[in-house]
Nucleic acid binder design. Structure first.
Lengths: 340, 340
DNA sequence: CCAAAATACGAAAACGTTTGCGTAGTTTGA
DNA sequence: TCAAACTACGCAAACGTTTTCGTATTTTGG
């Protein structure tokens, strides 16, 4: 079929043994320079391409990293993958990418498929619905290198990469307070999510420092459907005691907020200020432009990949430390949180 | 390492030959029901996972499809991949995803890596810089199933999936004309790109039908950098003879246009109307909301995958026909092309 | 009842690499 | 000068599957 010439045929063409050819191509010290040259030029002439599966079978390595994300149409995850791919490609690694669509069952299925060694390592961000972590535990116990980023799983003792969620949420909330907000709402996805917890803590602490009391109705846990979310937010905005500021834990809820605001008479930033975690390149052209907490997505991806590659390519690397590495976000202040 | 139990060990545990176990697991008619049951339950008990590389080596198939795109932070390509993944997953196929970053050299490198059978097929959208197609030709001649979508390569005799580029551009331009535009500019990337040519034809024909003459300066071929593009567009908007309507061949140029407009006194849609090919979910919350030609991204991905899977899973499938399959776009009229 | 067919399984080869081991022939060293 | 070391290569096994072929046992048919 598509398979080209094998090392045996290449050896035959050279009147050499396959083992000699293999060693020559791998630049072994046991082979003379003259032979190496002959082999290399013949390999080029015949366009010899080593079969990756034979190699993988033999070496029990695939030179492949699996990336598992909950959403593909998302600038943050896209940038993270770009970062991972950059480092991976430098070291000859390939990327298998899987989208769980925020579905735990799909996540379980994918991880179960990855048990057979198809990938040498996994880098992932869990679903907003992932509370039972036995499937992750299983992978980790099998010894498959596993790192998390952004939406991490605390129970698994491995290295995790996140941004300064607590601090950014604190600063973001504080920014709203300084701009005059008194009634600040917090939008997020699932309560179980690691980032939700940290960002929520930051939000609460900022309120406390300003002697503001968090209203129960101001913590909004949203669903998967954008339409439903817009409805939820609209209700909040139309309620008797509506917020005058919003901090959103994820990009798409800020978008839903813009959608909802359009259905009211409210004007951003006069009646409502909003800040969001986001990696949108177009935050600046929204009207009003959107104040964002921009996560260092590419860097996170690069760091994940660097750590993995180090473990995969060097001989006796220790297991990943059970630690959280924090890469800070940057707040971009724009019109949506202006005073007037 | 991460590799679990092999079929030999499983066979030993059952006092059977590996061949029998293999056949039992593959539901061969040569194995009795009783034995099959024993094998299956033991396999589950010992958590047997077949080694994919041994299988691939044996079968000369990888159950893997490579996807090559020019840009990852792009709603269109993200949706297409979602579509591909959906169908692929249904059939047990995995996805290797590569981003060329609009760089031909990277594209060549990636395709060269894919020559060794790591993937059973390739679905791709070429770089805006791809004019020499010898690397694509080589892959195709090797017999590796290859389909294109959106940015296709006409020289390669295979199946291509696109939207109705000509017609959509024609209709889009015509829409601008009917809304009163007299001086319509066309924004795109490279001249070499298939979609550019078709969409440009549609633009020109619509102008001709309306007895409008296309000004040379109104055809803007943009670069890779968003900042440069914004500059280019700004210059166009500030020129003596500025356009009063814009049709953009790609999403990000519409965004650059919004950026550029912000630096002028022009108001959309009063002074300038704009329509763009785009898959942004947030076109509706831009201010003014953006009229779009929405490509059927998921469907395109699904159709690509279906065609590939058919060829890969059925015994004696013919090569892909040298044809172009068109899946129509839909125009969403919003404020950016309103009359006043 | 007996040859022919069907059933159910095992032995071994093959896919394409890499690598441990063996060994001719050459070089080294005291 | 001659054993020891080195150089440069070949042989064969191994990775984990699947599949061709072979065969012992049972079943079928007239």
């Amino acid at each position: 079929m598509n398979s080209g010439i094998s090392i045996k045929e290449l050896a035959a063409a050279l009147n050499l043994a396959p083992s000699t050819v293999s060693r020559a191509l791998n630049d072994s010290y046991e082979i003379s320079e003259a032979t190496k040259q002959k082999v290399i030029s013949m390999a080029e002439k015949l366009n010899y391409q080593p079969n990756p599966f034979a190699r993988s079978l033999r070496a029990n390595k695939s030179r492949t990293i699996a990336v598992v994300i909950p959403e593909r149409i998302n600038n943050f995850f896209a940038k993270v993958i770009d970062g991972i791919e950059e480092i991976a490609q430098e070291h000859g690694y390939h990327l298998l990418v899987y989208n769980t669509h925020e579905d735990v069952e799909k996540e379980k299925k994918i991880l179960s498929l990855l048990q057979n060694g198809r990938a040498d390592a996994i880098v992932m961000s869990v679903t907003s619905q992932t509370s039972d972590t036995s499937h992750l535990q299983k992978i980790h116990e099998r010894g498959l290198p596993l790192v998390f980023f952004d939406r991490i799983c605390g129970e698994i003792p491995t290295t995790k990469f996140i941004t300064n969620d607590y601090e950014s949420a604190y600063k973001g909330t504080n920014h709203l307070i300084q701009q005059g907000c008194k009634k600040i709402a917090f939008l997020t996805l699932s309560k179980d999510l690691s980032i939700t917890k940290e960002r929520y803590r930051g939000y609460l602490d900022a309120l406390k420092m300003a002697n503001l009391t968090p209203e129960p109705t101001f913590s909004l846990y949203c669903k998967h459907s954008d339409e439903d979310n817009t409805e939820l937010i609209l209700k909040l905005l139309q309620s008797e005691n509506r917020p005058d500021g919003i901090i959103s834990s994820v990009e798409k809820l800020a978008i839903s907020t813009y959608q909802a605001v359009r259905k009211t008479n409210l004007k951003i930033p006069y009646d409502l200020k909003i800040i969001t975690f986001s990696n949108m390149s177009i935050a600046g052209i929204l009207n009003p432009s959107l104040t964002t907490i921009t996560q260092p997505a590419e860097t996170i991806g690069q760091e994940c990949a660097k750590l993995l590659i180090k473990k995969l390519t060097r001989p006796r690397q220790p297991d990943f430390l059970d630690q959280i590495i924090v890469i800070p976000s940057q707040i971009q202040i724009r019109e949506s949180t202006m005073v007037r």
